[in-house]
Design a protein around this nucleic acid. Structure first.
Lengths: 159, 159
DNA sequence: GGTGCGGTATCAGGGCCCTGATGTACCGTA
DNA sequence: TACGGTACATCAGGGCCCTGATACCGCACC
């Protein structure tokens, strides 16, 4: 692989900052950083907010469903749900159709909070959106989707 | 439907998947997921690899310098460096000019490993790059940079 | 009935990442 | 010399996220 016999580091230096992936990373970091900042004012983390939002859209959901929806593992979702339950924002009850399944639902205060949090998060999303015109938005989305597809490992089916 | 005291109509769509930010997140997740996967074969995490790469480029660096370079907090860099030191990939010695500063340097095996790891990470970066032609690459970078700039907090120098 | 398989939830362990706080080393300035 | 500001490293605590392993439920198939 790395023929060091010549003592020459033949792979070019290639600063990380030159790579395209770094631009993606910086954008994502700026996005999540801003969302974290505004959501902290209502004492929520980004994953907690995303989970509440999914529950608000879909009503009762199991932990496994939420994990798939929010793009995290079931183990991660377990801890997020535990924290949300301790905050009194959700309840979890065993499903009527499957004894093993715990269905999470928003409580009254959970419903109230998710609306407040979504207004805050939406402002951030709006700032992002406002940086582009319609054509640019569509273009950026298309390029990002292509990047995502290119990076998915070959033997795994899409999403 | 809602106890909306503000008089505004409830925000309608609420689907995370429609938002532009979600495309950014998915792309970043695919990128870091792939890099994690290939780097696991050499027993490195992504932050560990990025840190080694910075040291390979620049030689000896302090923890604070590395933190700034790798876009993490000094606290985070402390733990990354601790783990790298335990693996025998770096050494840390007090600076000759400042008693408080610890300068990190690659060991022999650290130098060897970073080359192997970079070859792997480069493949992923190449897959991403290959999804676009030159014009598209430049365009994507420009749009992402604009997104990053738009998300940086504009007001509130309240720190 | 029994068996195996897939889905679900959770524990254990490790790593990253942040905020907040602590203690030390240097340095400019009075 | 004394002091305050800045920079550095680290501890403490909390949260997210992953892999691997365990246990339990329901269902199809034998």
């Amino acid at each position: 692989m790395s023929d060091n016999a010549s003592g020459r580091p033949d792979p070019a230096p290639l600063d990380v900052h030159d790579r395209l992936g770094h631009a993606v990373k910086r954008a994502e970091q700026a996005l999540i950083g801003e969302k974290s900042r505004v959501l902290r004012t209502v004492d929520l983390t980004v994953p907690q907010y995303v989970t509440l939002l999914a529950l608000h859209r879909a009503g009762g959901m199991s932990g496994a469903q939420l994990a798939r929806e929010c793009l995290v593992t079931p183990q991660t979702m377990t801890t997020v749900l535990t924290n949300l339950e301790h905050k009194g924002l959700i309840t979890r009850e065993t499903s009527s159709v499957h004894q093993r399944v715990l269905v999470a639902r928003l409580t009254r205060s959970g419903r109230a909070l998710v609306k407040k949090a979504d207004a805050l998060a939406r402002d951030v999303e709006q700032r992002l959106s406002d940086a582009f015109d319609d054509a640019e938005r569509a273009l950026l989305r298309e390029l990002l989707d292509r990047a995502t597809a290119a990076l998915r490992r070959p033997d795994r089916p899409t999403d």
